[in-house]
């Protein structure tokens, strides 16, 4: 049974698209048929992060409007087997997404894919609601700062009230917290909220912590999902998130050991 996963946050710039690309790539690396959809109509970015921006012919809105077929719009990743991208339209706005149209496209994708990752736009308006409406699970991407936490809180409330599962009284969406752009040192100094604080406020299971890393920006600009960079700390963290999502408990990284922690505080 195909699963629809929304990557959402409320706030912009916290790493939704990076996460969508890394997470979808991670699932595909594990052998699952995976598609990642850009719901950010009018401000499309996912194609850049996935490095397929020069191969976009038809997009999500074309498929909804029947101007192109799903097969024409899906872009197969050249690096990872089983991975496809459904890009957003850059020339339209969010109103082009209709509930019926989105439902139809997702139904068609469900027949072909095991995981459907929906990259939500920022905000709590129509586009974000379209992205979350049909989700079975949600990754709530949050930065360790108060405004991001509050926006995530708002989004979690909407996941529980504005989505199909809520409206039709089905079992609720499974929500997971993903803390991104985390800097241990700044947490120790008290500049940033700790993962414990954020976890307490949002009160949903934590799927992982992604450290802030310059490799993320480099990978984005190069159009390479960070999970394909074996030397990136963030990439490794995302692979762990995928493992945890699939129900495995990844081995504790040596980085987390107390010795390392002591040595890092000394700097």
């Amino acid at each position: 049974m195909a699963k629809i996963i929304v990557v959402t946050s409320g706030k912009g710039g916290v790493g939704k698209t990076t996460t969508s690309a890394a997470f979808a790539t991670g699932l595909a690396l594990r052998g699952y048929q995976t598609v990642v959809i850009d719901f950010d109509v009018g401000l499309r970015n996912l194609d850049l992060v996935m490095g397929c921006e020069r191969r976009v012919v038809y997009d999500f809105v074309n498929v909804i409007n029947g101007e192109g077929s799903l097969n024409q719009a899906l872009i197969k990743d050249r690096r990872v087997e089983n991975l496809y991208v459904l890009p957003a339209s850059q020339t339209r706005d969010k109103d082009a997404l209709t509930l019926k149209g989105v439902a139809r496209v997702l139904e068609a994708l469900k027949k072909r894919f095991e995981y459907i990752v929906c990259d939500s736009p920022a905000g709590i308006e129509h586009g974000a609601i379209m992205a979350m409406y049909f989700a079975d699970e949600a990754l709530v991407v949050t930065n360790p700062e108060v405004s991001s936490v509050r926006d995530s809180d708002r989004i979690i409330g909407m996941l529980a009230s504005k989505t199909r599962r809520a409206v039709q009284n089905m079992p609720p969406i499974k929500e997971y917290l993903l803390l991104t752009r985390y800097i241990d040192k700044r947490v120790d100094r008290g500049d940033m909220l700790s993962s414990k604080d954020v976890g307490e406020i949002l009160a949903i299971p934590m799927l992982g912590i992604i450290p802030e890393s310059p490799t993320v920006l480099q990978a984005s600009n190069a159009g390479i999902p960070i999970t394909l960079d074996n030397n990136s700390e963030a990439g490794v963290a995302y692979l762990e998130v995928v493992a945890r999502f699939l129900g495995e408990e990844p081995p504790k990284r040596p980085k987390k050991s107390i010795f390392k922690w002591f040595s890092s505080t000394k700097n």
């Binding site: 709590i124 509050r150 926006d151 809180d153 708002r154 979690i156 409330g157 909407m158 529980a160 009230s161 406020i201 009160a203």
Partner: peptide, 26 residues
Amino acid sequence: KPVRSGQQVAALNGDLIVLSGVSQGA
């Protein structure tokens, strides 16, 4: 369940008991 930011819960005719947290903005 937690009362999240942006949510409003009202007991217009009696007591209100919240067994969980009430977030900022709720």
